[in-house]
Nucleic acid binder design. Structure first.
Lengths: 220, 220
DNA sequence: TAGATTGTTAATCGATTAACAATC
DNA sequence: TAGATTGTTAATCGATTAACAATC
């Protein structure tokens, strides 16, 4: 693989890969050895050609008339998505969502392990949640440095998101998963993934509104 | 369709509207009366023209040289997204994420109110979480019918998502917010919004993997 | 082989960006 | 008025879909 020919993978593709992975992993457990793009596509409502293009990024090649080897494909997707190399992460903001995430046992299947939590609430500092200690936010830079932490998760209230991100960045953290409903600003080279569940809710809300009452402001 | 003048609003637009709303609401509280698209765009890293096109869906018109009236815009976005008409919703699956959602006080700012929760775990049924009672899942159809519930939220384990959706559909629920990492199948006319936080995580994971190992990623 | 399925190139579709006329 | 900003139409860009040759 010549480096200059490799193209950046599109975000839609990255969003579909976990869907393929889940389907194929289940199928593998049920004994399926080979799978075609049409099968995958029909199960997930994705065009077979698109499936083929998505799978191409993993480097796996299929066999005409047979399809792809399911186990190899599952492995290749995991490898591609970085799920095989567990990255230690810090979580900041031990509210209800932060606590929920700390309770997710399966996080390490996705390449992550939350190793410590942080908060600025003295009542929470010093406690332990799902086996992880809660530290004062002031301790983050030193601990991140000593533990070589590269990933941070923000589950603070919205107004604390930006300051938290800045603390993370100066502490050497290079990838931030931001679960607050705001988009944070970071220097060049820092990877940020904003996950705004209220934006998702807005879509549902809007569609229901449209279905029940029709669009406001556009009298027909 | 025919000569229907109402065009469907694109999903990217629907995702940006809450961002504009939040910015403008804060700005209004700070005393800002008028705002231009360039201001909004520069704050949120969105092209001014795109902001203008997005805002057009709300029906609000701006004044050349002045911009848009902030308060009117905030109201119009809320109206458009359906945040002004509170919809009662049922939540199924009282795990860590479900509990976290039940704790969100601000849900009604987004047009929702979770009025009851359901689970199939006898240990949870009969308890109360953040002021909402937990019922057995078998009680859902009857209660949904009597309370005219139109919206359902699924926070069950992944394998229970599809059966739960089917119960919701036969109970008259018309919009489903699915927070499990699987895409559920529903009949024509039912609105579904899948919110897969692990897909978001996959993107972050993949980008970090790319950055650490030299595969070209898509920096934001 | 014959035919299903892959891998790849071309066409289409939709969203974003650019250009520009209207207007306060 | 002059100029900033809107609203709208055209150009661009990128992702999806269609077409088709290669191949097991």
């Amino acid at each position: 693989m010549a480096n200059d020919t490799i193209k950046a993978v599109s975000e839609p593709t990255l969003r579909r890969l976990p869907l393929y992975h889940r389907l194929l992993k289940t199928a593998a457990q049920d004994g399926l050895e080979f799978s075609s793009c049409s099968f995958i596509g029909s199960m997930l409502n994705v065009e077979p050609t698109l499936v083929r293009k998505d799978l191409a990024v993993t480097g796996i090649v299929g066999k005409p008339k047979v399809g792809y080897e399911v186990k190899a494909l599952v492995d290749a997707i995991e490898q591609f998505l970085g799920w095989r190399n567990i990255t230690d992460a810090f979580l900041v903001g031990v509210g209800s969502l932060g606590t929920a995430l700390l309770g997710y046992e399966k996080f390490n299947h996705y390449g992550f392990r939350i190793v410590a939590a942080f908060d600025n609430d003295p009542a929470k500092v010093g406690t332990e949640i799902h086996g992880r200690q809660v530290f004062d936010i002031d301790k983050l830079p030193d601990l991140a440095d000593r533990m070589h932490i590269l990933m941070g998760i923000i589950t603070t209230p919205v107004e604390a998101a930006q300051p938290t991100a800045e603390i993370m960045v100066v502490s050497g953290i290079r990838a931030i998963w931001n679960l607050t409903p705001t988009s944070i600003k970071v220097p060049e080279g820092i990877i940020v993934q904003n996950e705004d569940i209220f934006a998702s809710l807005a879509i549902l809300s809007s569609k229901l509104e449209a279905a029940l009452r029709g669009r406001p402001g556009k009298e027909s």
